[in-house]
Nucleic acid binder design. Sequence first.
DNA 1: ACAGGTATCACATCATTTGGGTATTGTATA
DNA 2: TATACAATACCCAAATGATGTGATACCTGT
Lengths: 222, 222
Amino acid sequence: MPTSVKEKKMPVKIIIYDDNQNLRESLSNLLALTGEYSIMGSFANCENVEAEVLKMQPDVILMDIDMPVVNGIEAVKKIRRFNEQVQIIILTVFDDNTHVFEALYAGANGYLLKKYISDKLIHAIQDVLTGGAPMSPSIARMVINNMQQPVQQAISKSDYQLTSREKEILQLLAQGNSFKMIAADLLISIDTVRTHIKHIYDKLHVRSQIEAVSKAINEKLV
Amino acid sequence: MPTSVKEKKMPVKIIIYDDNQNLRESLSNLLALTGEYSIMGSFANCENVEAEVLKMQPDVILMDIDMPVVNGIEAVKKIRRFNEQVQIIILTVFDDNTHVFEALYAGANGYLLKKYISDKLIHAIQDVLTGGAPMSPSIARMVINNMQQPVQQAISKSDYQLTSREKEILQLLAQGNSFKMIAADLLISIDTVRTHIKHIYDKLHVRSQIEAVSKAINEKLV
DNA sequence: ACAGGTATCACATCATTTGGGTATTGTATA
DNA sequence: TATACAATACCCAAATGATGTGATACCTGT
């Protein structure tokens, strides 16, 4: 968890990257109104993002995605190579899967659609500073759907009615143990292991160790 | 994306599950104030959740987690077996990883901490109905951190300097093919397959098929 | 032209796995 | 109580895999 809770008094240092000059000025004005934020700089592109971040040591960066020369996602990656602390909020018009996930994978802390700026930006900045991750609701939905996918496969998947002993043995097998090692582990004879494994093969409709392990791991049976 | 946009006029049908009677009444009152919501029912436990949801066909369900008999996460799973449309918002005091992910995996659409109910509940209900996923900011942060993990593993992962032929053979092996089948597939002799596999074992530091396949799949080499 | 790496093939030996069986015990259940 | 199933154990014969040693051929870079 980030540890960027500000001490009182100290204004929050912010840098803005966006190629639209009007927007940069609007943001600066909006943030200046509160008196709690100090705009260290605002830039139309990310050509010198590393130097700028290093020099100004901002607490928060507001980052557009679609900019000339270096796009915002690349810029986030560059920043994250040397700075894990700064809170980065993406401000963009893109609400498609690709942009959202690339940005979050790259290391962004929040993702706010531009249409919500006037409503939510101040709140979003407070969120990231207190360890939250502000996202427009539609973005959050995409993220959740993304994490649910593998599970929905899991739900539809049958478990082949393996007994608990058989699951145990399949698990040991999938971890790379030989019959002999499994027998030693479970304190039973190797022939018993063989019998269980024969039953497992029958139930999984496979004919060898390798097929069983492959199927077990791929279908997350273990 | 969900298609539960309500037509005007029709009030939004809501069911509440929470074992705290005071909270159930507070929620009902809060929602009744606006006149846009119709509380179809509120229950202290999920014993008959399936029948209730089937009968009342709610648009939104507000679900506590910690309830006697059937907990909220199990209830979400039960509901999702027959109803994909209803929007489920978890209302809970739990903000730990386990509860959050289990709930979202189970099929919840939003996750709101109880301390934010007065501030955010109305908004959260609007969110889920318009395809959003309301989450408390700290919850969103957990979700994002979770999705960033696998990538960081991926980056640090070594490739053991396998040649392309070796990777090809390892892949076929991990799909459950015997040496014989691999040889037939690649139109080479079984002894050649053996040799490649010997080299693979050396490079992966393993001594058997299963160990190699287990390592390959778990480290996403294939 | 030579060294190093890759891909190919062969032979031999020993260990492990597989595919048929059969059988005993205990537990749960119709 | 009779039946079914899970877990245990054993046997035999055949297939497959593990390991070592050696060899040929083709690139690539020096």
